[in-house]
Design a protein around this nucleic acid. Structure first.
Lengths: 173, 173
DNA sequence: AACGCATATTTCACCAGTGAACGAAGTATG
DNA sequence: CATACTTCGTTCACTGGTGAAATATGCGTT
């Protein structure tokens, strides 16, 4: 695949030319959106690459991590959908896959018989504990040359943008 | 779907708890990656939402934009693959779709008969000129409250991260 | 000029994610 | 207490994207 910086300079030139043709275009904002999209998906691809050897995809990994991070190691499909930003359909498949591998269990909830209780198994915990640490070095390397202030600033700006996006959301028409 | 800031605080808590259990985890870096991924894909979703009424998906839109921004309005599948970060397989389908709608044409290249020359049509240009401007307001709104320095800084940090990602890339094993 | 090798695009089979519809369980209303 | 409405999870059919092989052209060597 092509280097990220190549795509970025292509994008820069393209938007530069567009700016001259299309008056009124918010060029800087468009640039930032493209950057966000490119870097964001590249980060995800990088993650998926590290997950492939474990035969996990991104959504399964995220689901497993949420369960792992829970003090009681359990949740429900609906909640997992919400926090992984996945549709219920997909969560069903994810839960199927993880159950099949013995990393989680699915059982009926006592309080509300509509709900399903999903719980990480001891094997699931061991799996996470084993696969996670090898990822740390590359994760750190990604931010090589970033000062503490840089990281803080990046976090601040991304959260600010996220707030704007939430506020913006309603656009069904 | 669930608000972005909800997912973010979930993620913050989750990584917070993880940091206590998993010693040596680069928590801040992990947080930034998750943020990048979430905000990036949210931006893409926002774009796709705006494209849906025009019956375009993200890749088709990007392809069309590249062609539009070219002085001569033309390119080749290979080049488009490179700059859209799409596989050749997909580019074939994209070109099929855009050709069918009369927005581009496909013809043999004169210099290298292996190559295919893709060119935006006048109808394609009109289409872009019509669909683009209505997107500007929301695009600007996304960065409401961002100072010029904020935008500059966000751009700088994303580009820096992109460079690191390129440098990092080789990890096939 | 004929052979093998490299490159560009397409075709095919498959995978992950999505929207619509369904059945089961709960909740509210007359 | 019966009927309608809601919520939760699953199933199914479809879309967008990917990897491996097929096809076609060009390039370099002998």
């Amino acid at each position: 695949m092509s280097r990220l910086s190549t795509c970025i300079s292509m994008m820069d030139e393209g938007i530069g030319r567009m700016g001259q043709i299309m008056p009124g275009m918010p060029g800087e904002e468009a640039r930032l959106c493209r950057l966000l999209a490119m870097v964001g998906s590249h980060v995800l691809e990088e993650l998926e690459r590290k997950l492939k050897p474990h035969k996990l995809n991104h959504s399964e990994f995220l689901t497993l991590m949420i369960l792992y991070s829970r003090p009681d190691g359990s949740s429900t499909p609906g909640e997992l959908c919400e926090f992984t930003s996945q549709g219920a359909t997909n969560m069903t498949r994810i839960a199927n896959a993880l159950t099949q591998r013995g990393l989680i269990t699915r059982g009926a909830s006592r309080e509300d018989r509509r709900r399903v209780q999903i719980r990480i198994t001891p094997a699931g915990r061991r799996f996470v504990q084993k696969m996670l640490p090898p990822m740390f070095p590359r994760l750190s390397a990604m931010y090589e040359g970033f000062t503490a202030a840089d990281k803080r600033e990046l976090g601040r700006l991304l959260r600010k943008l996220a707030d704007n996006l939430d506020r913006l959301e309603p656009l069904p028409p």
